[in-house]
């Protein structure tokens, strides 16, 4: 990809670390400094980061629960309507809606709907897909998915001040403090 665009407005300041422990200590400091619009990027989920960053629990499980209930009800209604109402099947005098025989499909659709809710719920909460992001245009940031650990404070944070935040990030002990610019369309 082309070189990092430098002409856009300041999106964020970023610094990077080599080891998970330095990274986590830095995150604790950013959290305690009171920043809100900031993030930590690493090639794998570092254990204990939720606390270090002060991330609250996600509502994803509730979305999945709704998906599961939908799947369960849809499967039950579908089988009842198709086999007992719209096209009644009489097989060896058995009841038209017999839960034991209808349960396998109910179970499968509960799992199916829950899995879709989980998959797309995660996309929705994470704002995915988003192919166009200032960080993705930054060449240095490419190692975030490989072997380096990044702390990024965004310019829209109320506490952000380009000089003071830069000094603060430099004090965390990372390698370099770098500016991340907004992407400007040619």
């Amino acid at each position: 990809m082309s070189a990092t665009p430098r002409n856009g407005a300041l999106h964020a300041l970023m610094t990077d670390f080599e080891s998970p422990s330095q990274f986590m200590q830095a995150c604790v400091k950013v959290r305690d400094a009171g920043y809100r619009h900031w993030d930590a990027h690493s090639p794998f989920p570092v254990h204990g980061m939720d606390d270090a960053m002060g991330i609250r629990g996600t509502r994803l499980p509730w979305i999945v629960l709704v998906g599961g209930i939908t799947g369960f009800s849809a499967a039950l209604l579908m089988q009842w309507w198709m086999n007992a109402v719209d096209y009644p099947y009489v097989i060896s005098g058995k009841p038209l809606l017999g839960l034991p025989a209808n349960f396998p499909v109910i179970f499968e659709l509960t799992v199916l709907f829950s899995a879709f809710a989980c998959f797309f719920g995660m996309w929705g909460l994470n704002g995915m897909p988003r192919w166009h992001h200032p960080l993705l245009a930054n060449d240095r940031f490419r190692r975030a998915s490989q072997d380096r650990f990044y702390v990024v404070i965004e310019a829209r944070d109320p506490k952000f001040d380009s000089e003071r935040t830069r000094a603060f990030l430099a004090s965390l002990g990372g390698a370099v403090v770098e500016e991340v610019r907004e992407i400007v369309e040619a």
């Binding site: 993030d39 989920p45 994470n126």
Partner: peptide, 13 residues
């Protein structure tokens, strides 16, 4: 899908 290895994303992921 524009994955940025963000910890706020990792958490939900």
């Amino acid at each position: 899908l524009g994955w940025r290895s963000s910890h706020r994303h990792w958490h939900r992921y």
